[in-house]
């Protein structure tokens, strides 16, 4: 006898009525949802082999226990397929990890999205896009998995925009912000292997993040050339005073140019670390750092991040076009760190 689903039941006439009912209850992110029924919710739980009362995560600050049943209800509403559920569960574990620090990025005026970087076989199995139109529409897995996590934040954790989610601006990635690394074409060590997992494991890395910032360099045929442009764009971006994690997304053409110069991810991180420092004088002159400018401030520099390891380097994006992107993390690494979680099937 399968365990009982304990969620409150609501009777509606038909599917159209159900969609409007979900809007009226305040359960939607602004787009229509798939009505969650006993059958569809059970299929989600079965796909992840989870009992409904299993605790996926606990948000200490809000004393909120996130059960598998509630994750499943929200995953159905987001439009996920049952096979997406293990990935949704792993991402929810990630944002409930104390290192991710839910209270900050979930609430802050800084308006963070949850950037999710998928690695390992699950990315191919679920057709998580790692190529053309990386951050854009067109792939069900990319759009629904991130949406499911945001609906859990809204409906289970109470992160309602304007109430407990106080983002001043927010950004479109708060609807869904899922990418995969292009491991098939990447010349580099995958992100999850760098972070201690085996290549044949599937993982999701969650990072509290601003929107993607695209940059352009069609002139350089060396790693130093491309990365100099990138570093110049990054230097005063996001939160130099907070020093958060940064994701750096290198697409096809830049990936080949950079690796052609013999640069691995470690060399990229070191180059970016050295070339994104800013003088205290400039930070004070531009009102990012408080205090009067002292003579020594002209040569005293502040790095963009605390350590080169705080840059997450990801090979992803279309093959054509001299574009790549960086994604500043939210706040500071002291308040929220990127967390990588294994996907369990």
């Amino acid at each position: 006898m399968p365990a009982t689903l304990t969620s409150k039941r609501h009777k509606v006439d038909d599917v159209a009525d159900a969609i409007e009912f979900c809007f009226e209850q305040g359960w939607s992110d602004g787009l229509p949802v798939v009505p969650p029924t006993e059958k569809s919710v059970r299929a989600m739980l079965d796909a992840a082999r989870l009992e409904p009362d299993h605790q996926v995560g606990f948000i200490e600050h809000r004393a909120v226990s996130i059960t598998a049943e509630k994750v499943a209800v929200n995953a159905v509403m987001a439009g996920c397929k049952p096979q997406h559920m293990p990935l949704v569960v792993a991402a929810v574990k990630g944002i409930a990890d104390p290192r991710w620090g839910y209270h900050g990025p979930g609430t802050s005026t800084g308006g963070a999205g949850v950037l999710m970087i998928v690695n390992g076989p699950v990315a191919r199995e679920l057709d998580v896009n790692a190529g053309d139109n990386l951050f854009g529409p067109g792939w069900r897995a990319n759009l629904t998995i991130g949406r499911a996590v945001r609906l859990v934040m809204r409906n289970v954790c109470g992160s309602l925009p304007g109430l407990l989610d106080r983002g001043t601006l927010g950004h479109p990635g708060k609807l869904s912000y899922v990418i995969a690394e292009n491991e098939a074409e990447s010349p580099w060590t995958p992100l999850h292997v760098e972070r201690g997992f085996r290549a044949d494991q599937s993982t999701v890395t969650v990072m509290a993040a601003q929107g993607p910032h695209q940059f352009y360099n069609q002139l350089s045929n060396t790693a130093e050339g491309v990365l100099t442009t990138l570093a110049d764009d990054m230097r005063i971006s996001g939160g130099i005073m907070g020093q958060p994690n940064y994701a750096v997304i290198l697409a096809g053409e830049h990936m080949l140019t950079i690796s052609g110069s013999g640069f691995g991810k470690a060399e990229i991180r070191r180059f970016l670390f050295e070339n994104t420092k800013t003088s205290h004088a400039h930070l004070k002159r531009t009102h990012r750092m408080s205090g009067a400018i002292q003579p020594a401030d002209e040569t005293l520099t502040r790095p963009l991040v605390e350590s080169p390891d705080d840059f997450l380097i990801v090979a992803a994006g279309g093959r054509a076009g001299a574009f790549s992107a960086y994604v500043p993390g939210w706040g500071s690494k002291r308040s929220s760190q990127a967390v990588t979680v294994a996907v369990e099937k």
Partner: peptide, 11 residues
């Protein structure tokens, strides 16, 4: 049809 409530139902 019957819908399942997606919100937290705390003890």
């Amino acid at each position: 049809m019957e819908l399942l409530d997606p919100t937290l139902e705390a003890q």
